[in-house]
Design a protein around this nucleic acid. Structure first.
Lengths: 197, 197
DNA sequence: GTCTATACGCGGATAGAC
DNA sequence: GTCTATCCGCGTATAGAC
């Protein structure tokens, strides 16, 4: 217990967030750069430049670029897990759904400048698709969002809603809205959408 | 009139689609690869391999990779222009909106495997943001979609709807639905969403 | 229009000193 | 943890023959 446990990449889903200071700096810088240039368009040199060190220093923290991508993805996923847990602790399904919705909107607003890259970048999407833990986490999220239904009538609106929230925050049409105003509108419309018969 | 006019990159918005056979092959291959690997993750070698020629042959068609990116973006935008024109030729605003919605859904379904990359890739997004013609085209689209309103109450739902349609078609939740089923559900839900008070 | 060949830099990655 | 130095391959791009 006294030894600093590795924590590493887990693989079972919930990254416990205990990244070293240095690792955390890399992950933060990488996430911002991924959002601006895409994963494929971001080099280790760029990451090193942003945090003011050399490439070799970055390599000391992560042996490969892939590991950085994974760490960024897990860091985002960890935030989502917190939201899901909060919703799952709510006994009433309808309330649970609303809690989840609120949390998801908050996350999207918080990540406003990078949300769509983090959920849409081909490299990250591929990564999500291949990892058990991520699939399980998303399955839990969908369960809360869709409730009983599992057919197209439940899945299509769920897919639309997730896409709408994630995509809208970065949309040029709402670029001039401040976070709080956007949050209010988004939440209102998302609730409306879910209440549709 | 007899000479094949250059058509080139236009710049005023509507690319007139008169690409040579060879150029069209490059653009098609590039679009598919962009969708799978992102713009930054796609090399000229990949493009050349897909169409079965050498890199140099590709360079003969487009002097730089940027030109290919532009051509792909314009090709997508041209499709959207057709949809917008169809909607604009409809006198009744409500009907125009419905025509546009239908066309956009059709486009998204057609481009199902690449839609979100084509609208979400950072490289392409930057490109769209910088080009007059693209901004004007999108302005026309928004106008039809939002009608009179120009405040947040109109813009937020418009942003959500565009994001929802583009993002939902690639979502894992609906991966098992065939095009026609997905189209039906998507259109139904999109109409509902827009009719909200 | 397509090819071979080639220049040149950058990207990922490693070794070893401090 | 960070640095300098270095390797190698691939990516963009060009020259010139067929």
């Amino acid at each position: 217990m006294s030894t600093q446990s590795a924590a590493a990449l887990s693989g079972s889903g919930a990254a416990a967030i205990p990244l070293s200071e240095a690792k955390a700096r890399v992950v933060d810088a990488a996430a911002a750069l991924f959002a601006e240039h895409g994963v494929g368009g971001t080099s280790l040199q760029m990451i090193a430049d942003v945090i003011g060190v050399t490439k070799a220093a970055v390599y000391h923290q992560f042996k490969t670029k892939d590991e950085i991508v994974i760490a960024v993805a897990e860091s985002e996923m960890a935030r989502l897990e917190v939201a899901i847990k909060a919703a799952e602790s709510e006994p009433d399904p309808v309330k649970a759904r609303d809690v989840l919705l609120t949390r998801i909107v908050d996350l999207a607003i918080e990540r406003r400048r990078m949300e769509s890259t983090l959920t849409g970048d081909p490299v990250l999407v591929r990564f999500y698709a291949r990892h058990e833990g991520f699939r399980r986490t998303m399955a839990r999220l969908y369960r809360i969002l869709m409730g009983e239904g599992a057919g197209p009538e439940a899945r299509v609106p769920a897919a639309m809603l997730i896409a709408a929230i994630g995509g809208a925050v970065m949309h040029p049409l709402v670029a001039d809205l401040d976070d709080s105003a956007l949050r209010t509108h988004l939440l209102h419309l998302a609730r409306r959408f879910l209440d549709l018969p």
